[in-house]
């Protein structure tokens, strides 16, 4: 009994009041921030939520110190291929996954600490023309990659030292898969969005990698990216971002949508709609629970409540520089916001 809100709801005079700056960390050796994330890290019997920052040639692990300060624990050097993404691995400890490449991902690596050798190490997980990668629960990684002839969609299991022998190939759709999302509460279901705007659903139990259904999102929202999927009352609710959607009179400038799909009939219905603040364009987003965040081309960061369909906070670029990155921490209502100069600010939302 909820209907898509076609009229964008925007708050006038949005400010940072919903975001409280907690601390910031600056890597003096880092020039350009590429990505930021959080990871659970255990050392000497103490398990802490640490921050991981990436620039093109290195990835650093930061641990919390007293008084909201952060100390660098270690920096992995990655000099051969540029780092382009940190791939969060849910429910794992002492393991950082990164994607490296030029225009697209060519390599996936694990960064870890080996207690056997008492040293920080890195190991290669996969190479290829990788189009999308996502960390799954139970220390697994799903990726889509392309050769000239075909697309491979594969789930690999990770050991503490790298790629384990257990793997599973999923039936690929004809079109390239650009993003994945686990179906919350259903370990055996996985969803992907494709280059021609379809939602595909796989069964990923140990026996099969069947492609169960392909459903179309609609032509108005090209190259939609799935962020979050949950199943409720026989429907699949998919949170999508629309990095390339054009502004329209009826919908404004769409940033995120929640769409309900009936997997049995492939019919769908819009549930909630979030628009960009007026005068802003372009976005690169992240979603956690009902909170969505995106970096806009103006150098601002916008935050939305997806249940309300409203923009709830706006971080404008300030004299210290434009915003380049925005990610939610894996736990707590904490926003990680990165500037081009490598500074990462932690905000409580």
């Amino acid at each position: 009994d909820v209907a898509e809100q076609l009229t964008p709801v925007l708050l006038d005079g949005l400010t940072e009041e919903n975001l409280q700056l907690v601390s910031n960390l600056k890597d003096s050796s880092s020039s350009c921030a590429v990505d930021v994330s959080t990871v659970w890290w255990e050392a000497a019997g103490c398990r802490e939520l640490c921050v991981v920052t990436a620039c093109e040639s290195s990835v650093s692990l930061w641990k919390p110190l007293a008084s909201d300060h952060w100390g660098k624990v270690y920096t992995w050097q990655l000099t051969e291929i540029p780092v382009i993404q940190i791939v969060p691995l849910p429910d794992t400890c002492n393991l950082v996954c990164i994607a490296l490449g030029d225009l697209e991902i060519g390599e996936i690596r694990l960064l870890l600490y080996s207690s056997e050798n008492n040293s920080f190490q890195q190991s290669l997980v996969k190479t290829g023309n990788i189009k999308a990668v996502l960390g799954l629960k139970d220390r697994r990684l799903v990726s889509s990659s392309r050769t000239v002839q075909e697309q491979q969609v594969e789930i690999v299991s990770l050991s503490v030292t790298g790629r384990s022998r257990d793997g599973q190939t999923l039936m690929p759709p004809e079109e390239t898969v650009l993003a994945f999302a686990e179906v919350e509460g259903m370990r055996d279901a996985l969803v992907g969005t494709t280059a021609v705007n379809s939602i595909v659903v796989w069964s990923v139990n140990l026996k099969t990698g069947q492609l169960l259904k392909k459903m179309h999102v609609g032509y108005s929202y090209p190259a939609s990216i799935c962020h979050r999927v949950y199943s409720d009352s026989g429907l699949l609710f998919v949170v999508l971002s629309h990095p390339h959607a054009k502004e329209s009179e009826s919908c404004g400038n769409p940033a995120f949508r929640v769409i309900a799909f009936n997997p049995k009939t492939a019919r769908s219905m819009g549930v909630m709609f979030s628009s960009l603040p007026p005068g802003h364009t372009g976005r690169q987003g992240d979603v956690k629970d009902a909170s969505a965040v995106a970096v806009l081309t103006s150098g601002a960061i916008a935050v939305w409540d997806l249940l309300l369909g409203q923009c709830t906070a706006l971080l404008l670029p300030d004299p210290a520089g434009s915003w380049a990155l925005a990610r939610w921490a894996i736990t707590g209502a904490c926003l990680l916001a990165g500037r081009w100069d490598g500074t990462v600010c932690l905000y409580r939302y």
Partner: peptide, 23 residues
């Protein structure tokens, strides 16, 4: 969301689609 908009809804959609899909 109602069945008139989305067609017949099944709580067991995953099991049913798994059984229908080619191996």
């Amino acid at each position: 969301c109602s069945e008139s908009d989305l067609g017949p809804i099944s709580l067991n959609w995953f099991e049913e689609l798994s059984a229908e899909a080619p191996p």
